[in-house]
Amino acid sequence: MAKLFAVTILLIAIGSAIPILRHTWDAPPDISTHGTLIDEQMSDTMVEAGISFLVSQILLAFFIWKFSSSRPSDKIKTFPGGAKTIVWAAFLLVGTEVLALGVFGVKAWANVYLTPPSANALPIQVQAEQFAFYFRYPGPDGTFGPVHPEMINGATENFFGIDQTNDADSKDDIVTAEMAIPVNREIHLLMHAKDVGHSFFVPELRVQQDFVPGLDLSVHFTATRIGRYEIVCTQLCGLGHYNMKAYLSVLSAQNYDDWLKKQAALQ
């Protein structure tokens, strides 16, 4: 029984590692400039975690195999060095290893969250609501008009509550249900929640940030590959949560300008 158990653990450990090693279910390829650091951090952690996982499971299996068949006359043996060795090993090996991961990870995090967007980043507003994302582009004047929550009206498609008759800044604002961005241009995404908490997650872009009602956050990123990607909501926001999504089109600069003009004409 013990031997069967040991073999089972072994098989499970190896079986669990195979999809990881073969990249059967991998994260979608990165299309951002900051994603490399995150991916490196991820793969470093995967190596360390994988080794720790395999070593400890194999050791567990081996010990169960080896020490389950002793005779009554056998004397028990003590692990060489006893608890002291173990404590030192835990502090030195695991402690330093994991802390090193943490320290290197700071760079990847700081790169996203603790560096301000560059001055020429393209500002885009995104508003999350149950259960859709809407995007607002500032138009030629480069400024967004103020938002009036009391004017929000889904029927007239005034999703942001913009007063286009009185606010000068709002007149040229472009509101869309799909997000398009130019490739290789930094985007400064200004995030606003209309009702409850939501999240902005584009796996390819390595961006995930919650919308916090009452607190307008922003993220910034640069996409490097033209394509069409999905923006999904990851913060439980109600019954339509699973259906809350939008498309992100990364376009060439020329196509982006055309797209924006087309959208402006539709307003």
Partner: peptide, 27 residues
């Protein structure tokens, strides 16, 4: 993040104590 990573240490100690006690035991 850092205290979270530090949790690894006592957890590892607990696991290693179990494993180290398996060594040479009469399971």
């Amino acid at each position: 993040s850092f205290p979270t990573l530090v949790i690894t240490i006592p957890s590892t100690i607990v696991v290693l104590i179990w494993m180290g006690s398996l060594y040479g035991a009469k399971l």
